[in-house]
Simulated assay, not measured.
Amino acid sequence: MTAIQASKKNIERLLILAILVCLAFIYASFLSIDSSSYQSFFQSYGSTAWKDLFVSGLPSIELFFIVLAKGLYAIPTGSYILIFLYVLFAVSLKLYLIDRESRAFEVSLFFYAAYFLLPLDGTVIRAALAISLLYWSFYLLIKGKYFYYLLVVMFCTVFVHYSSVFFLLFLILVQVSFSVIFGAIVLALLTFPLNLNQLLVQLMGNLNGSDLLSFAPFSKFYFYVTGNINNTISFSLFGFKSVLAYLAALILYFYRDSFSSFERICYKSFLVSIFVFILLKDFPVVQSRLADMFGFAFIFLVPYLFALLIILSNRFFAISAFTLVYSLLFIERMGL
């Protein structure tokens, strides 16, 4: 690649980043279902004194959010600057990874824009940043940049504490074989006739007042589970999106020997997202959060499916088919 071509590519990437960040920021600030909650969090945490930070123990919201809220509270538009910074960091890291690790940048980019940009980076901005840091850390680990990997882990442990536990889960994925994860999916399918809702709610209810709930990951999980009792939302295990995911997982299995080290972890993560989606069918709030976290990995695998469709048909048909599927996924994801 010549210097001119490299410069043109960098300008294109910056332009794409600017467009994605602007879209996610506008949606997160004014249109998402969580926009008012973040304004409320900003007021609640930003208005308190720094000395009161640990008065009631470890805060239930991550320190990164609190530090930004306190630092920006005196600025009239401080809450919007906070949202912008979250969106900027999260989208930048995702775009960097797509540029570095995707075999077809445009295919992965459009899938990310259709399925994750607004529902994730434009809605649950805190979880979106945690997911970006999680995948970026494993990119650094695979590339042998151990010092920077440890820095990211330490940052997340201190500032994004409730998500730091998932670093351990991803480290386990490095060692676990594909067959073990497929076996777990089969076991999850066997629980399909059962309703695990009341069982887990009762189990978590027994933890009420326990010291375990002072540990942020447990307290967050406890909140989602016990708050799910009267939740009537359900995500079909055999809906359009679900069937596509199952089919994609089976097709991608035949490409496993072609995967890079990063893609192998992504494929395992994608399989875990299916396992979580099936097992936690009675807990849609927890189900959707964990499925998104592990399912984000599919962004880096979708180029294999695009290439297969080109082989089976032609490039025009593949582009048309993927455009249609992306559009349908966007409509379903946004509830349009």
Score class of each variant (00 low, 15 high):
77 T>N: 09
61 I>E: 03
43 Q>F: 03
56 S>I: 02
89 F>G: 14
46 G>Q: 14
84 F>E: 08
47 S>R: 12
91 V>H: 10
43 Q>E: 15
77 T>C: 12
59 P>H: 03
74 A>K: 10
62 E>N: 02
53 L>N: 01
44 S>I: 03
89 F>N: 15
75 I>V: 10
52 D>F: 03
52 D>N: 14
83 I>G: 09
87 V>F: 12
76 P>L: 12
43 Q>I: 08
48 T>L: 07
63 L>K: 01
54 F>N: 06
72 L>I: 07
83 I>L: 15
49 A>E: 11
42 F>M: 15
47 S>P: 02
60 S>E: 07
56 S>F: 09
60 S>G: 05
63 L>R: 00
55 V>G: 02
62 E>I: 00
42 F>K: 14
45 Y>H: 14
83 I>A: 13
69 A>W: 04
48 T>P: 00
85 L>P: 05
74 A>V: 13
47 S>L: 05
49 A>I: 01
65 F>H: 07
81 I>K: 04
73 Y>I: 11
80 Y>V: 09
79 S>G: 11
58 L>E: 02
71 G>D: 10
65 F>C: 04
65 F>I: 05
75 I>A: 07
77 T>A: 14
76 P>Y: 05
83 I>Y: 06
65 F>Q: 06
86 Y>L: 09
60 S>Q: 05
61 I>C: 01
87 V>C: 10
87 V>G: 09
69 A>Y: 01
44 S>T: 13
71 G>N: 12
46 G>W: 11
58 L>I: 12
88 L>D: 10
42 F>H: 14
91 V>N: 07
86 Y>D: 03
44 S>C: 00
64 F>S: 06
56 S>T: 07
77 T>I: 13
